[in-house]
Simulated scan of single mutants.
Amino acid sequence: MSRSWRGPYRAAVSRRRRSLPRRLFDWFLAIAILGLLILLSARLDRSEPRLASGSAVVNDGDTITVGDERIRLRGIDAPEYQQICRKSGADYACGRASRDALARLTRNKAVSCSGRQHDRYGRLLGDCKAGGVSLNSAQVEAGWAIAYGDFEAEQARARQRAAGLWAGSFEEPRAWRDAHGGMVESDRDHGGSFLDWLRQILRFS
């Protein structure tokens, strides 16, 4: 072996040896991605809408219980039951008012809900109707819940009419929960919905 090409030959062998771990890593990564895609595909194939119907127990302005299913109304956020807001220079129990508004919508009516995801607290994220009326939309339209990833048009109309919460001043429910150590909701506008979806996809029970 002449000295003129011994150096390039050794360099080529060295590059091949150095690239072996990289090639193994690339193969491992490809197999892992393929496995994840197969897992997601299988899970999505099994994912059927969860349905619940019957009389509703209203927990607060955006949460109800139908049968044994606790349901968080998707796309909206209502003040917590203990939350206080301001109107006409005085405090009032806006959380209770929001709950009462939802109770009026469901009173003496069969409620039907549908959803595919559960949040981190095990509640079904659902779209619900009572007497043909969307509870999600109606709560925002009446001003007793704010848009939380959906129903922006309904909120704009409620705000223009100074309906419900918009008749005075209020702290956004998420900020109120943070300040009072309450349940922390997923942020639907900043990736929380995706995280809930991923969590649901990877749950096998």
Rank of each mutant, 00 (worst) to 15 (best):
M1K: 13
S2P: 08
S4W: 13
W5C: 03
R6L: 11
G7W: 07
A11I: 09
A11T: 11
A12Q: 12
A12L: 14
R17I: 12
R17D: 09
R18A: 13
R18C: 01
L20V: 09
P21T: 09
R23H: 03
F25I: 03
F25C: 01
W27V: 14
F28Q: 07
F28P: 00
I31Q: 00
I33S: 11
G35W: 11
L39F: 12
A42D: 07
R43K: 14
D45M: 06
R46Y: 07
E48M: 10
R50C: 04
L51S: 03
A52G: 15
S53V: 02
G54E: 03
S55H: 12
A56W: 05
A56G: 01
N59E: 13
N59V: 14
D60C: 11
D60A: 12
G61S: 10
T63Y: 00
T65F: 11
T65C: 14
V66K: 10
D68A: 08
E69W: 09
I71R: 04
L73V: 10
G75N: 07
D77K: 09
A78C: 05
P79W: 02
P79G: 03
C85N: 06
C85E: 06
R86T: 10
A90L: 06
A90E: 07
A93Y: 00
R96E: 12
R96L: 12
S98E: 04
S98P: 01
D100Y: 10
A101Y: 09
L102G: 00
R104E: 09
R104V: 05
L105I: 00
T106E: 00
T106V: 03
R107V: 04
V111T: 07
S114W: 04
H118I: 07
H118P: 02
R120E: 03
D127E: 11
A130S: 11
A130I: 06
G132N: 03
S137G: 02
Q139S: 03
Q139D: 03
V140T: 06
E141Q: 10
A142P: 01
W144D: 02
A145P: 08
A145Q: 08
I146V: 15
I146T: 14
Y148Q: 02
Y148P: 01
A153R: 10
A153P: 05
A153D: 14
E154S: 11
A156P: 01
A156T: 05
R157V: 08
A158Y: 13
A158H: 12
R159F: 06
Q160A: 14
R161P: 05
R161C: 06
G164E: 04
L165C: 08
A167R: 15
A167N: 15
S169M: 05
F170A: 13
W176P: 03
A179K: 15
A179M: 11
H180K: 11
G181T: 13
V184T: 13
H190N: 15
G191E: 01
G192K: 04
F194Y: 11
L195R: 11
D196N: 04
D196C: 00
W197T: 14
W197C: 10
R199A: 15
